[in-house]
């Protein structure tokens, strides 16, 4: 893309700005902030990636992945403050999912062990694991809140903490992974996935673009299911103490 063409893409920013101003929508400030941030963040990451690809050192790859995980954990942990120790639980979840998927991809030689593959795929896995963690935590805390009676019932009948939250846990795991599975059913019918579109625009063979997209889709399926199950099973024990009592209790 020529610098002029890139400059002309700003027309697509100008249209919402003009409309917002005319109709008094008050979106101008956020639109400008979003535009400036996306330009600087994407160019910064672009130049960093170029540097990492050129140097081809594993240390830089690891640093990049660590940075992604740090940002993802920081973001996701805001959602689960009600659960004690949620920060390290999300860290373990995302690190395990990243290690598992990379081990399979690199171990079986599905993709080459170069920065060009490892970093973008890690970005998708970590990002997806973060979103799934947020979805799971939102749902799980809501389920616990709404079903405190049920939890208390099972405990008072002599059930263990795991039995007391089992339904809420499995419901939350299902609810958080269903969107990933459902979106795969209409994939290619309604819209072309972003990564595939990008590859096609950049001149790649569409069939090869499809092959890579399938790899990513299946990868994200594992990411989704493993993230929410792992986070679920790490989270529920910290809701109870050693006397099998709910740590946060309502009172009469």
């Amino acid at each position: 893309m020529s610098p002029l063409a890139l400059f002309l893409t700003l027309i697509f920013v100008l249209i919402p700005l003009v409309l917002s101003k005319t109709l008094n929508l008050g979106l101008e400030r956020d639109t400008i902030i979003a535009t400036v941030r996306s330009i600087t963040q994407l160019f910064a990451v672009g130049y960093i990636l170029k540097f990492v690809f050129d140097s081809d050192g594993y240390l830089y790859i690891l640093l990049m992945i660590a940075l992604m995980i740090f940002a993802a954990v920081h973001n996701a942990s805001k959602k689960g403050k009600a659960i004690p120790g949620i920060l390290w639980k999300i860290t373990v979840t995302i690190v395990v999912v990243e290690l598992l998927t990379q081990a399979i991809l690199l171990g079986f030689g599905i993709v080459p062990a170069t920065a060009q593959y490892i970093i973008p795929i890690s970005g998708m896995v970590v990002g997806n694991s973060m979103v799934l963690s947020i979805l799971f935590l939102n749902r799980f805390t809501a389920e616990l809140e709404a079903n405190q009676n049920r939890t208390e019932l099972i405990l008072s009948l002599g059930g263990t903490p795991k039995q007391a939250v089992h339904t809420q846990l499995t419901d939350s795991i299902k609810a958080s992974t269903i969107p990933t599975i459902e979106s795969q059913k209409t994939m290619g019918l309604v819209q072309l996935p972003g990564m595939m579109s990008g590859q096609i625009i950049a001149g790649a063979d569409p069939v090869q673009a499809v092959q890579f997209q399938l790899l990513i889709l299946f990868l994200l399926l594992t990411t989704a299911v493993v993230s929410s199950i792992l986070l679920g099973f790490l989270s529920y024990p910290s809701l109870f103490n050693e006397r099998m009592q709910l740590i946060r209790q309502k009172n009469d």
Binding site: L153, S156, L157, R243, M244, Q245
Partner: peptide
């Protein structure tokens, strides 16, 4: 804890 809750049952 589970034995105690079976010995001392509760109707909510």
């Amino acid at each position: 804890p589970t034995d105690l809750r079976r010995k001392v049952g509760m109707a909510l």
